[in-house]
């Protein structure tokens, strides 16, 4: 499988990274080199093998339902690039 320029643009769009026209070709080459390298997994027989998704082999621990966080709007907003009162602010979204 090899990526064409349109796919590179589509992925960039999905990843919300602006890619200039002149960057597409370089990216395409680099991404294809990586995909070419990982192609070797095709040799491995994985019939009947379960996927391993995590590093830890245990069951999920659950916490009690208590409120012990929040009430820190000042800290939550302290790093905001833009805010209106205690809201985060972004360019207007038209739905």
């Amino acid at each position: 499988m090899s990526l064409d320029a349109a796919t590179v643009r589509r992925i960039a769009k999905l990843a919300r990274i602006r890619v200039e026209d002149e960057e597409v070709q370089t990216l395409q080459g680099e991404l294809n080199a990586i995909l070419g390298y990982v192609e070797q997994l095709g040799e491995v027989n994985v019939d009947g093998v379960e996927p391993l998704s995590g590093g830890a082999q245990m069951a999920l621990r659950q916490r009690e339902d208590v409120v012990n966080d929040g009430g820190i709007a000042g800290k939550i907003l302290a790093n905001a690039p833009d805010r209106e009162l205690n809201f985060f602010a972004v360019p207007k979204v038209v739905e």
Binding site: R63, V67, N68, D69, G70, G71, A73, I76, N86, F87
Partner: peptide
């Protein structure tokens, strides 16, 4: 997260760093 799930509240009051 341990932030309150109560409806309403002042803006971003029921918010933890996780949320």
């Amino acid at each position: 997260s341990g932030a309150s799930a109560t409806y309403g509240g002042a803006p971003n009051a029921h918010v933890s760093f996780v949320d």
